[in-house]
Design a protein around this nucleic acid. Sequence first.
DNA 1: CGCCTGACTGAGG
DNA 2: CCCTCAGCCAGGC
Length: 126
Amino acid sequence: MEQIKVNSSQLDTYKKIWRVVQAIPSGKVSSYGAIADIAGLPGRARLVGKCLGQVPKDGFCGQPVPWFRVLRSDGSIAFPIGSEAFDRQKALLMDEGVFVKGRRINLNDFSWRPDLSELLALEQPY
DNA sequence: CGCCTGACTGAGG
DNA sequence: CCCTCAGCCAGGC
């Protein structure tokens, strides 16, 4: 992928986002806006997309960052249909049992709904 | 500062 | 279902 090009303050923001994304369980999905909210960055859904495009290839803190579990608020895959990224994301989702119909996923069936204890755990990672 | 571009969103048609 | 539009926030120029 691309080299990460952000200053240290933005890198902190990116790390917060990556950490939230890591909390999405296999077989579940979330949205850019929801991740932004949980990360304490309301209104910055587009930043989440940008950030996920720069996930370190080796993962973050020894754990992979499941970028493919993040979708648009309507449950659709953000990449254009037919693009390589689209196919990759769709395949990864289906691999873990997420049913992808055309370009979208039924959020009622697969949306991640963290309980309070999960969210609190994200506040105190170390 | 303006202008344009995004892995975005919500409301409408 | 599709598409459009205004609003949104960061960044680059």
